[in-house]
Amino acid sequence: MKSNSHEIYADYFNQRQEDFRNKLICDASQVRDKIDEIHRVGNIDLLENAHKLVMYALGENDSLASFAEKEGVVWAQHDLTLSFKLEWVQSIRRTMWRFLEEFHEENKDKKVNLFKLERQVNDAIDQFLNGFFLSYSRYKDALLASQRELVENLSAPIIPLSDSVCVLPLIGEVDEDRVETIEGKTLPEIKKLQIETLIIDFSGIAQIDTTSMNRIMKTINGTYMMGCECIITGLRPQIVRTLIKEDLQFDPKVITKGTLEQTVNDFFFAK
């Protein structure tokens, strides 16, 4: 049930909603020029949401947490600036208190516990901000985790050619971080996909240092421990020279072929 004081305050703000919006826009100097842009980008009605927050702050409402969570997600989805949001909410708080002050000047005969009202309003707005920032942060963290997983998959994409044959094309620069991703993905994927033959193509590698190459060679040797045959294709002359210079050798079981195309043809088209 809404308290009688809540209804009185709600009616006051509803009757002066247009005046409140105008005063709020004047107060939020850094945000007012962005109101239309934010509405266009994220379909977010800042003025309507400001009125909702005022109504929540004037009386207990279980929907405040849900409102804050939704606001945080939408703000994060459209990558809107947090400083704008913080200034906007603080402007709502300041403007709201100016209107409450005017209300009590106009209604001096009404006895109101201002300390209780102050706690209620400020606590509600603080709860909104906390919920908003937590929701925003959770969404961003989940997005970063998803992007990190995508980058890792693109860094070591194991592509099935058949039920038992897969190819791992290595592209770009291979450094220690990239090798760690390759190590962390290759052996589990061999087990998961039940790969019998893994073709690792080096033709797209732009650069690789000796340490990283040595770790890749150990990973290749590990594929045999998993019962998976490994075929190396596309070794470029500079990589071969590095192997010779550093006296690095593949396990004798490792098969090397000139190109990925040749290897695929041998597997699927050779008579």
Results as ranks from 00 to 15, higher is better:
F20R: 03
K218C: 07
R98G: 11
I205K: 01
L161P: 03
D11C: 11
I44H: 01
S146C: 06
N22K: 13
E152T: 09
Q262Y: 09
F269G: 04
W75L: 00
I255T: 13
H6N: 12
V254C: 04
A65G: 03
A68E: 01
F250L: 15
L114F: 04
P160H: 10
H104Q: 14
D123K: 14
S155C: 13
I171V: 15
K23R: 14
F132Q: 00
G131M: 06
L64G: 02
S137H: 05
R119M: 08
F115W: 13
L53R: 02
V112S: 08
H6C: 09
T259I: 07
A142E: 11
S29L: 15
W97M: 13
I208Y: 01
E37G: 05
I216L: 15
F103A: 04
Q17S: 15
P188E: 05
D201W: 05
G59V: 06
V240T: 09
D141C: 02
V73E: 00
D79V: 06
L187M: 12
T95R: 07
C26L: 08
E118A: 05
K245Y: 03
A142C: 05
S83Q: 09
K34G: 04
Q238S: 14
H6Y: 15
T181N: 06
Y9N: 09
L47D: 11
W75N: 00
V174D: 02
E69C: 00
N22I: 13
T95F: 06
L46K: 01
K191H: 07
L150R: 11
I159V: 15
L198K: 01
E189D: 05
S3V: 13
I205W: 03
Q147V: 10
V151R: 12
N130W: 06
S29P: 05
E180H: 13
Y9I: 11
T181R: 09
V74G: 00
Q249W: 12
Y12M: 08
G42I: 00
Q77R: 00
I208A: 02
Y136K: 01
L150T: 08
T259A: 11
E60K: 11
F202Q: 04
K185S: 12
L193E: 06
R93I: 07
T256F: 14
I220Q: 03
V73L: 00
D36A: 12
G227D: 05
M226W: 09
V174P: 00
V41E: 11
Y224K: 04
T211C: 04
Y12K: 12
Q249H: 10
V31Y: 02
S162A: 07
A156L: 12
I125N: 02
P157E: 07
T223E: 10
F67M: 03
S135C: 05
S162T: 13
A124T: 08
L193Q: 08
I200T: 02
H104E: 09
C228V: 11
L80M: 14
L46A: 04
